[in-house]
Amino acid sequence: MAKRLLIVLALFLLAMMFWEVAANYTERTALTPIATHYVAQGPDEVGAPNLVTAVVVTYRGLDTLGEVTVLFLSAVAVGLLLTMGGLDQKAEPPTPASEIVETAVQYLFPIVLLFGAYIFVNGHLSPGGGFQGGAVIASATLLLFLALPRSKLRHALLIITESLSGFGYVLVGVLGLVLAGGFLDNRVLPLGDYGRLFSAGAIPVIYTFIGLKVGAELSAVLERFKGEAS
């Protein structure tokens, strides 16, 4: 009873807090000074037409490294949990998909991979980036597993991709520390011509590492969840 009362009290206090916030809300009509700087100076300073990428990869690059690491961590933790066993009950052998589906997947799989790569390589030019491209790549893996449940990924390759792309990302960051203004400075490479594929300094390199890493990690997590479906 006392516990219930406490919960109700806590919820009431939270509700009061949120009410306080909501009741005093007024819409902002102008950009903040910092946002104004990003919009006005971003193209010159960073060289990326996609300003979201400019903020995410350069101005606040350390946060992005942190987010990539959170995903890496989750993959490690999933690995830790799912290799500890418990999920080895014998499942019914899956019914094979129809020939049309199986054939279509074989043609679609490389195209989806290519599209994922396109999204992360062009992250500084068009909407998208490393995370999105990596997720598209993982969706190719999911497609493969759905159509051909017996397919196996080369686990060692995934781990190597994951580790080396993470290592590469941090290394580019350290290069920024040595050669340019600070850790994760994208100006270790020339900013190049605005709007070209090879421009905006190290952003395409960083996004390639992130795309590969996210793709490999999410694929590995999918495979863990699939288990030993035979």
Binding site: I34, H37, Y38, E45, T58, Y59, R60, G61, L62, D63, G176, A180, G181, G182, F183, L184, D185, N186, R187
Partner: peptide, 13 residues
């Protein structure tokens, strides 16, 4: 203070 990425605060981290 260390400006990460070489962007002066409060623009960068």
């Amino acid at each position: 203070a260390i400006a990460l990425g070489g962007f002066a605060p409060p623009l960068g981290i």
